[in-house]
Structure formats: structure tokens, C-alpha cells
Write a protein that binds this DNA or RNA. Structure first.
Length: 197
DNA sequence: AGCACGATTAACT
DNA sequence: GTTAATCGTGCTC
């Protein structure tokens, strides 16, 4: 029997969003494609979006058809479409009824590199999954996965409990790409990432 | 009904 | 550093 890390359980997601975001660094995101191929990579960048008061969070406008997954139980996917062309993957956190999630912004690919390369246009000169939309394109994640329960036994998307990164390997910064979001939300240090060197 | 803009990316000067 | 691509969403009229 080959040793495999266990899946993160719902309790891992049902916690304060900042804790979850930090805790996801180093974990392995796994995607089983519709034709049964296993793609995976270690999470190296994540951001927290927390509640209706956070004016960077989609929940700021209340519960809508688009953001309803964020209001549901933790451990589910919130996948949305933006800029007319890109999908973004979030993991829902906290208790059901409280809208919050962690945006996955980057992974270090481990399994299925050839397939991911193919998904990214077959080019060797473009990075594979170092941005939220690139990650989704590489791992074949789109709106059909919105609302998916990552904790379900047969889920085609889940996170394995590989070791988290040590504190000395983790950096924090304001969130990326918020543009017109006002303070104090614009500067909240809610982005966590593994630093190089 | 119209409009401004987006939790981005790749290409270009 | 700047900008086009491309369209769903939420807000205003």
C-alpha cells in the first residue's frame, strides 16, 4: 500500500479565514480531470476575503446568484468568472451563513505537468500556474466546479494534508489587484505567499 | 436599458 | 510601464 496524505477535513476549513489561508501554504491541491487524470501542485500563494464588511470581498453586495457558494458551508469551492475570460478558485471558510473564502493564487505543479502545459496552450515559455487564472486553466477548473464539496469522498477537487510551510518561508502582504477598493481594506495584510531564495 | 469595472494575463513599447 | 482582450455582474437611470 502506497502512503498517501489524507484529505483536509471540514474542520480545517471551518476556522477563521486568515488561519486557513496561512495553513493552506504547502498543502497539495489535487484535481482529477473529467477523463480521470490526476493533476496536482503545492499551494504557494493565497488570499483571505472575509465577510460583508470587507469591501474587497464579493460578499460586500450581499448574497447574490454569483457569490452564493461563499455563504454556504466551509470546504466547498467558490469558482467565479472575471475579466470576461478568467476563472478564479476559492475555498469557502468559516461557518455556513458567514461569507468568506480563500483565493488560491498560485501552486508549484507536481503531477500532470505535461497535461497542464497542454492546458496552458502547449507553450514552454509561459509559466504554468503562478497566478489565480493560470492555476485554473492549468488544472481544468471552471464554473462547473462552483459549489463543489472538497471534503466529499469522490470529489474531483480536494486538498491533501501535506506539511505546511514553516513561518520563516512565509511572507505576508496586501492583496493583489484590488484597484478601486478603499482603505482600510486595500492595505489589509491578507495575502500569504512562499518567498523564493 | 445602459454603463463602468473587475480578486487577470500576455503582448507590446 | 502600458494596454487590449472580453463579458458577466451590480448599480444607476
Amino acid at each position: 500500500m502506497i502512503h498517501m496524505p489524507t484529505k483536509l477535513t471540514r474542520q480545517a476549513y471551518q476556522r477563521p479565514t486568515l488561519e486557513v489561508a496561512r495553513d493552506l501554504l504547502g498543502r497539495r491541491l489535487v484535481r482529477i480531470t473529467s477523463d480521470g487524470m490526476r493533476l496536482s501542485g503545492r499551494i504557494i500563494e493565497a488570499e483571505a476575503y472575509i465577510g460583508v464588511e470587507d469591501l474587497a470581498c464579493h460578499a460586500k453586495s450581499g448574497r447574490t446568484a454569483r457569490n452564493q457558494s461563499m455563504w454556504g458551508p466551509p470546504g466547498h469551492a467558490y469558482v467565479y468568472f472575471t475579466y470576461g475570460m478568467h476563472w478564479m478558485l476559492n475555498i469557502v471558510t468559516e461557518q455556513a451563513g458567514f461569507p468568506a473564502a480563500v483565493l488560491l493564487r498560485g501552486i508549484k505543479p507536481e503531477e500532470g505537468l505535461d497535461r497542464m502545459r497542454q492546458n496552458r496552450g502547449g507553450r514552454s515559455d509561459l509559466p504554468l500556474a503562478d497566478g489565480p487564472a493560470k492555476l485554473c486553466q492549468a488544472m481544468e477548473i471552471d464554473g462547473s466546479l462552483d459549489g463543489l464539496d472538497l471534503c466529499a469522498p469522490d470529489s474531483p477537487l480536494f486538498i491533501e494534508a501535506t506539511a505546511t510551510f514553516q513561518d520563516k518561508a512565509v511572507r505576508v502582504s496586501p492583496r493583489i489587484g484590488l484597484n478601486t477598493v478603499p482603505e482600510p481594506w486595500l492595505s489589509k495584510p491578507w495575502r500569504f505567499f512562499a518567498h523564493s531564495t
